[in-house]
Design a protein around this nucleic acid. Sequence first.
DNA 1: CTCTCCTTCTTGACAGCGTAAAGATCACTG
DNA 2: CAGTGATCTTTACGCTGTCAAGAAGGAGAG
Lengths: 195, 195
Amino acid sequence: MSRSASGYHHGDLRRALVAAGVTLLDEQPPGRISLREVAREAGVSHAAPYHHFGDRGDLLKAVGDECMRDFLDRQESAVAAENDPAARLVALGEAYVAYAADRPHAFALIFDPELCPPGDASPERAPLIARNEELLAECVVAWLEGRGEALTDAASLAAALWGTVHGLAGLVSEGHLARDQVMPALQALVGDRGR
Amino acid sequence: MSRSASGYHHGDLRRALVAAGVTLLDEQPPGRISLREVAREAGVSHAAPYHHFGDRGDLLKAVGDECMRDFLDRQESAVAAENDPAARLVALGEAYVAYAADRPHAFALIFDPELCPPGDASPERAPLIARNEELLAECVVAWLEGRGEALTDAASLAAALWGTVHGLAGLVSEGHLARDQVMPALQALVGDRGR
DNA sequence: CTCTCCTTCTTGACAGCGTAAAGATCACTG
DNA sequence: CAGTGATCTTTACGCTGTCAAGAAGGAGAG
């Protein structure tokens, strides 16, 4: 196996197709990415992908998995770079929004309900989603503990903050909100809490 | 003019096409709605829409305008039904999320950046967007005034709350969050503020 | 080394799509 | 009643997703 591009047999076409999809996603929204274009980008015939993916949706799902990994990695890195619980929480939000702003099409793909039916995510995707929710919950709990607040409704607060960050990310990635309005907004909401 | 369905000339095809689009949106996401299917639904040939809309995107934009009107109406009604500023703010959020949960495809269409490029919205759409942001700002300001809080960063707080509500709506409409988690989340974030 | 099998990739085909051009039909005006 | 312009239909083109059939080549058995 490996990367032998020896004419007929590609060697690692599946990975190449996903990579091509990720590349195309830089310039096109998920809905406009065609299977044939991905195949062309990978230098392969238009029906080749069907030996690695059931249909177009499956290919985009795999591309989405790849993006989700990247998305989660960035959040983990951002959180790990801070020590103060409040700073960690803010860093997570910042990374979340930054990804949506930098890669709007990838962000849209990750949360596309047509391609990742929530509830029964792919075996590839499910652990990533679980880890991401866990990461957020950890940050929220640590933050509340640091402030000596009750943890009674930590889950609800986590949901609310997920909503806030997700909403700001969506609004920014779709251009409804300027990116530089995000931090002030988060400060207004979270920074003053308990004052 | 009017509703004479006398064979060749429809009479009010434009409106009929938009209505057909709204209907189809109940069962299909925007990306899967084809121009030809809308034409079929309206009982007209597949090329007829081109005499009323530049292309598929323009038709969907008009459908989105219609949905946006409905979306805004529901928020206005919900807010008007309450007196207490805090209750009005919560009612607005509830209506926002309820629309997204009840009509997820319409919600997605309204905020589809491909079809409503933010910045230069259609003359139809722009005033609706402006009014919606105004409505939210009014509710936030009234709420802050009622609590005797400073209005310094009311705009930032409004942006944050827009993000929260928009994010929760998106997560619910896409199935990532159960609808009954929304109210507790909002309570946890807003209800305790200033305590 | 050769034969065979199985996987991978290609080719060719089909229906459905968005869109443009050309033709048919109707309402309205003079 | 003739003519004109708007509205709708027909036809056609290239692109798409998908399937079926065939070609290419690696892997194991003899």
